[in-house]
């Protein structure tokens, strides 16, 4: 297997070189994050191209989620710079929608599906504005996009894992953002949900929006994404999937942890036996 083989399979042209800073959805420079003595993310720089579907890929504990959270200012970074459409995060928060890991919240929380989606309208509603008909309509429309409109008035604890994930995606859609950051959206979801999420992400791309997913399923990277960032605490590689998602880069990213058997499971083009 070598990178030349991949070239046959890529369906996207390489990204145009250096677009204007204000067009770059997310630009990370030398970002370092540490929870204790060991850094979780070390001097990672990355550029997410406009209208791309970017996957952040790496082994467990490689700092994928941490990188995303640090880019959003949810966890403090030791050093580095984050620009969102050319502006510091504080001036561009309204252009970002965030989908946290499903397991990060308590689904027994006493609230209904539609209330969760309405949380995506927080910037619009503020502290005291009443939820009006138009807000509910918007929330229902977002639920409809992920195929969950029938569940609007259910308690969230009654949903399956995949349905919960779709509700989170609907909440992000309600934010009307330009850049969507998703933390493991496909983790532990059923096939119907996986398809629903992919359809939404594709429609976002068609609307000239950008999506970045922390992704752990190597077998679907080539299928779902056009751009990839490989990290293992440090950045290993970034670029179009076709030229970057290579066995060589994966070996560098996963080190000894990526067994040969694992590589065989990837739906990567195989040379003729």
């Amino acid at each position: 297997m070598n990178s030349a083989v991949f070239e046959l399979y890529r369906d996207e042209p390489p990204q145009a070189a250096s677009p204007l800073a204000a067009d770059v959805p997310l630009s990370i420079r030398e970002l370092t994050v540490s929870y204790g003595e060991k850094p979780a993310v070390l001097a990672v720089s990355a550029t997410v191209p406009p209208e791309s579907m970017t996957a952040i890929v790496g082994p467990n504990g490689a700092g994928k989620s941490t990188l995303l959270k640090a880019a959003l200012g949810i966890v403090p970074s030791l050093s580095g710079q984050v620009l969102v459409y050319g502006k510091p995060l504080s001036q561009a928060m309204h252009r970002i929608a965030y989908v946290p890991q499903r397991a990060s919240v308590d689904w027994d929380f006493p609230t209904r599906v539609i209330d969760v989606v309405l949380m995506g309208l927080y910037r619009e509603l503020g502290l005291l504005r009443f939820v009006r008909h138009q807000h509910k309509e918007k929330a229902l429309a977002c639920l409809h996009r992920v195929g969950m409109a029938d569940f609007a008035y259910r308690q969230i604890g009654q949903l399956s894992g995949g349905q919960q994930q779709r509700v989170f995606l609907a909440r992000a859609l309600a934010q009307d953002a330009d850049l969507y950051l998703l933390d493991e959206p496909f983790a532990g979801v059923d096939a119907a949900t996986e398809k629903a999420i992919i359809d939404v992400l594709k429609s976002l791309k068609a609307e000239h929006k950008t999506a970045v997913c922390v992704h752990h399923d190597l077998s679907t990277v080539t299928q779902y994404f056009d751009h990839v960032l490989l990290i293992n605490v440090r950045k290993i590689a970034e670029g179009p999937v076709a030229s970057t998602f290579t066995e060589e880069n994966l070996q560098k990213t996963y080190g000894g942890r990526l067994a040969t058997a694992h590589i065989d499971e990837l739906k990567l083009p195989e040379p003729q036996r």
Binding site: G73, P100, V105, T111, V116
Partner: peptide
């Protein structure tokens, strides 16, 4: 609203500022 939002999902609450 901030209280409910940050109690349910602190990460998301952070991300909306």
């Amino acid at each position: 609203r901030p209280l409910k939002l940050s109690t349910f999902d602190e990460g998301f609450a952070n991300a909306v500022g």
